[in-house]
Design a protein around this nucleic acid. Structure first.
Ligand code: MN
Ligand code: MN
Ligand code: ZN
Ligand code: ZN
Lengths: 122, 122
DNA sequence: AAATTAAATAGGAATGATTACTATTTACAA
DNA sequence: TTGTAAATAGTAATCATTCCTATTTAATTT
């Protein structure tokens, strides 16, 4: 993999963000440093960074969002403002029961907890 | 809400399916009964049926799939063939811990268990 | 320090899922 | 029956994302 200033920039933007941004937001941030960077470059590098384990992606309804926190973790999602909040909540499921009851070999759980974040408590 | 043959048909197609189909599949099925039904009509009515609680929708990566099973339930998702399998697995999370630790008011959990269905066991 | 080469880019076109628009059709009530 | 507004078919538009390609650039070789 050849060095690319754009790719390093995109990685740093995602890694230092806490909002789980989408490609468009990353693009706008990147333009502050490379004024003529193209959106295609952002998408291509986000995918490369994901495939090489440098960042993670989250499918949030009809959009892809990116996460600079590559630790295994889950999220709270605010239904009011769309915020995604990192948690250390563990998912515990009964592997054997799933295999027995459904003839299915599980190996990962994805979940979000939907609700309201503190911004909306009156 | 005025009666519409197309809407009843779309409802019956989703209700009787077990595959959690997308709009395109529902459209193809519907054409077997109403040859010139339009895709827009399918999308519009799927949304109406969802909003009136007659069916549910599931965001599966970048596509919306529909579910005729309106009971509260979760799914196993096969990473090999994309199959979604209904389960009666319950999500148990500690509501109080979430409120205390994250200042977040949870009210629903969405999860999938990813893995391989029986079709891929050698 | 040039010349070489293939990877990466910018910019724009294409795609695919979904939604919006609009003239026509249809359910249903007066 | 006739009047009406809701629903439809057909099509155009939108939005996120991917694809294409001429040009630029990082890295290797002279
Ligand atoms: Mn996260
Ligand atoms: Mn289901
Ligand atoms: Zn919020
Ligand atoms: Zn499968």
């Amino acid at each position: 993999m050849r060095y690319s200033y754009q790719r390093e920039l995109i990685k740093d933007i995602v890694r230092s963000s806490k909002t789980h941004p989408n490609a468009e937001w990353v693009f706008c941030e990147a333009k502050k440093k490379v004024e003529n960077i193209s959106l295609g470059t952002v998408y291509r590098n986000l995918k490369i960074l994901e495939n090489t384990g440098k960042i993670k992606s989250i499918h949030d309804d009809n959009q892809v969002r990116y996460d600079g926190n590559i630790e295994d973790h889950h999220h709270l999602k605010c239904v009011k403002c769309g915020a995604l909040i990192d948690t250390d909540i563990q998912s515990n499921f009964d592997r054997k029961k799933i295999m027995d009851d459904y003839d299915f070999e599980p190996n990962e759980v994805k979940f979000f907890i939907l609700g309201k974040c503190k911004k909306h408590t009156k």
